[in-house]
Lab assay of single mutants.
Amino acid sequence: NQESVVAAVLIPINTALTVGMMTTRVVSPTGIPAEDIPRLISMQVNQVVPMGTTLMPDMVKGYAP
């Protein structure tokens, strides 16, 4: 099972992602793959992401799977 990126904290809208904001977990449905965390650093979320929420591609500005 592939791990997906999950919010480790509440991430406010338009916040640039940092390593500490993200964790990984096997979830269903799957979100952004864990191995993409290095690509996500400094990208901004386009909505509020509650802690424990799986990051989906459409939540991150400029992210393309």
Rank of each mutant, 00 (worst) to 15 (best):
T54F: 03
M59T: 04
V27W: 02
G62N: 05
G31R: 05
G20C: 04
I32P: 00
S28W: 12
Q2G: 15
D58Y: 15
A64I: 06
T30P: 14
M21S: 05
N14R: 11
A34C: 03
V26I: 15
S42D: 15
D36P: 00
A7C: 03
V5E: 00
V60H: 01
Q47G: 05
I32M: 05
P50V: 14
L17I: 05
D58R: 12
P38M: 14
P57R: 11
Y63R: 04
M43W: 07
L10W: 11
A16L: 10
V45E: 01
I37F: 11
E3K: 11
N46M: 09
P33A: 06
V6Q: 05
M22G: 01
G31A: 05
I41Q: 12
T24L: 15
T54N: 02
V19H: 11
L40F: 02
I11E: 00
V26W: 09
A16T: 14
V19I: 09
P12R: 09
A34H: 06
Q47T: 09
P38I: 06
M51C: 03
G52A: 05
I41M: 07
M51F: 13
N1M: 10
M59C: 03
L10G: 12
Q2S: 14
P12L: 05
M51E: 15
A34N: 05
I11Y: 00
L10P: 06
R25H: 10
T15F: 05
E3F: 09
S28T: 15
T30F: 07
V45S: 09
M22S: 01
R39P: 02
A8M: 12
G62Q: 11
L40T: 02
V48I: 11
L40R: 00
V19F: 13
P38T: 14
N46K: 06
G62C: 04
M59P: 01
G20M: 12
G52C: 03
R39D: 04
T54D: 01
A16I: 14
Q47I: 15
V49M: 03
T53P: 00
G31W: 02
G20R: 05
V60K: 01
V6L: 09
I13T: 12
L55R: 00
T53G: 06
G20D: 14
V19R: 10
S28A: 04
E35G: 15
T18C: 03
V49G: 00
P50L: 09
G20I: 09
G62M: 06
G62V: 05
P12N: 14
Y63H: 05
V6F: 02
V5I: 10
Q2Y: 15
E35D: 10
P38S: 11
L55H: 00
V27E: 05
L55V: 11
M22P: 01
V9D: 05
P50G: 07
K61L: 11
S42T: 10
L10V: 08
T23L: 15
P29Q: 06
M51S: 07
I41A: 11
I32E: 01
M56W: 05
P57T: 15
M43K: 07
G62F: 05
G62R: 08
N46L: 11
L40P: 00
T30R: 14
T15E: 10
V26Y: 12
T30M: 10
Q44F: 15
I13Q: 14
V48S: 09
M22Y: 02
V48K: 15
A8T: 07
Q44R: 14
T53H: 09
L17M: 12
R25Q: 09
N46T: 11
E35V: 15
K61N: 13
Q2L: 08
V26P: 13
T18E: 13
G31Y: 02
L17K: 00
A34F: 04
S4D: 01
A8H: 07
I11H: 00
L55I: 09
P12S: 08
V26G: 09
M21A: 06
A16F: 12
T18I: 04
V60L: 15
V45H: 01
N1S: 14
N14S: 12
V9A: 12
